[in-house]
Design a protein around this nucleic acid. Structure first.
Length: 419
RNA sequence: GUGAUCGUAGCUCAGUUCGGUUAGAGCACCUGGUUGUGGUCCAGGAUGUCGGGGGUUCAAAUCCCCUCGGUCACCCCA
């Protein structure tokens, strides 16, 4: 059991009931919210040609050092998806559905990194992508849907942080300014940030190291580098959110780790649990990505929400608890088990949630299992009942409620008492 | 990849400081009290490569080294 080879690989885990049920329900709630808005599901492969992800940018850690890539038996260089936006965009280019294409997805992603609270090597996300629309109000719709989803789960301590990264040109100007700012005081910057500065200056703003704090707060703000168009877009996004009464705060330091974001970038933070990884969802606009992946010039917006982290937030806020497993009838058979076999089949076919015991256990043991199953009624069959073509119907919620009924009326009797 | 910390029954943990009889507790599980009846109660029972490997020692869960895994933080992100 402790043999390494018979344990879930590092950073992965088995999700058993009731957690598995919460995962499933969470996905169902999400599907409901986005279906109501006209989104349709897309299911893409869990692996792609590695180039699909490499197009996300060589400065992105997710592709630079966290990718699970491998060669298949045909010599193809493939990678397990670290996120799904690239796959969805690739699928868009391959099939060219009519725009606007509003797609939603769910499923596992893979990143090779050290695990910690709210972070695993295999983790699942739900998300949406819209391709073919430039309208800033779509950015608003996208955020509003995520917001609505969190609300449906019962989460209250979610904060929306918003920023604009401007157009590619705005952004490059900003990066130059940042580079200048940090280079001036290079020695004051932490060693790690100095390295980051070379690879991706924007990301320095993300540093959590105390040493960097004052330099970062003195850094130029992205908002001062927005072109007129970008500023207009950003203003409309904010007006849209205001009109829907969705609270948000502008965070000019919000840069996000995927490098393809343009203009709108946002993140949902849970304030309910204590961990470094408290971003439960994030996204933004990525005009240009479709082109980068070989498609026609097409704007895009979307977000991804981490299933595991969102459930962590639900735990912390004590919401979205699982309902009890609802067995209605438990068949107790002390004649060998054949009667239970027939009865459970009959009752299940009739729509009753039915369970039973196995291995010809004692009546006491079977009753114990009936109790533990949460069943409301037990149907008891012994030799006497078989001979007289009856069963005993026992109400497990009471200590005494028990009656002998004929076999033909079992369903009728149950229905009367259950509904 | 870096640092800290932990790893004893299915679960939660005691025992590790200062090595020393067959390694314990609670919960859960099983059987019986109740030869046809659960949830309460009582009695009994089963369960451990003390994460793994190596070393020191007359003797290791306990000390040392290595390794694997968990947790937390950095990095990064959902």
């Amino acid at each position: 059991m402790n043999d390494l080879n018979f344990r879930a690989p590092k950073g992965t885990r088995d999700i058993l009931w009731p957690d598995s049920a919460r995962h499933q329900f969470l996905t169902e709630v999400f599907a409901e919210v986005v279906s109501e808005a006209g989104y349709t599901q897309v299911i893409t492969p869990m692996f792609e040609h590695v180039e699909v992800f490499q197009r996300l940018g060589g400065a992105t850690d997710v592709v630079r050092k966290e990718m699970y890539d491998f060669q298949d038996k045909g010599g193809r260089h493939l990678a397990l998806r670290p996120e799904q936006t690239a796959s969805v965009v690739r699928a868009f280019n391959e099939h060219r559905p009519a725009i606007p294409w509003k797609a939603w997805y769910t499923g596992p992603n893979f990143r090779y990194e050290r695990s910690q609270k709210g972070r695993f090597r295999q983790f699942s996300q739900v998300g949406i992508e819209v391709l073919g629309v430039e309208d800033p109000y779509l950015d608003v719709e996208v955020m509003a849907l995520a917001w609505r989803f969190y609300e449906r789960l019962g989460l209250r301590q979610v904060k929306l942080e918003l920023n604009s990264l401007g157009s590619k040109e705005d952004r490059n100007k900003f990066i130059d300014a940042l580079q200048q700012h940090f280079t001036q005081s290079l020695s004051e910057l932490s060693e790690e940030s100095q390295k980051t500065l070379e690879v991706n200056p924007l990301r320095v703003l993300d540093s959590n190291r105390e040493q960097d704090a004052h330099l970062i707060s003195a850094a130029p703000s992205m908002l001062d580098f927005l072109s007129e168009d970008s500023e207009e877009h950003f203003t409309q996004v904010q007006e849209g959110l205001n009109s829907l009464n969705i609270p948000f705060s502008v965070n000019p330091k919000l840069v996000r780790g995927l490098d393809y974001y343009i203009r709108t970038a946002f993140e949902f933070i849970s304030e309910s649990f204590d961990a470094a990884q408290n971003a439960i969802g994030g996204g933004g606009r990525y005009d240009g990505l479709v082109e980068d992946l070989g498609g026609p010039s097409t704007p895009g917006v979307g977000f991804a929400i981490g299933t595991d982290r969102t459930l962590l937030a639900c735990d912390a806020e004590k919401t979205f608890q699982m309902p009890e497993a609802a067995i209605e009838v438990f068949v107790v058979d002390v004649t060998g088990g054949m009667e239970a076999l027939k009865l459970t089949t009959e009752l299940r076919n009739a729509g009753f949630k039915t369970d039973r015991a196995w291995d010809n256990r004692s009546m006491k043991a079977q009753m114990k299992l009936a109790d533990r199953s949460g069943a409301l009624f037990a149907i008891i069959v012994g030799e006497e009942e078989v001979a007289s073509d009856t069963v005993i119907l026992r109400d497990l919620r009471e200590s005494t409620g028990q009656s002998k009924i004929t076999r033909e009326t079992i369903q009728e009797d149950l229905r009367k008492r259950l509904r």
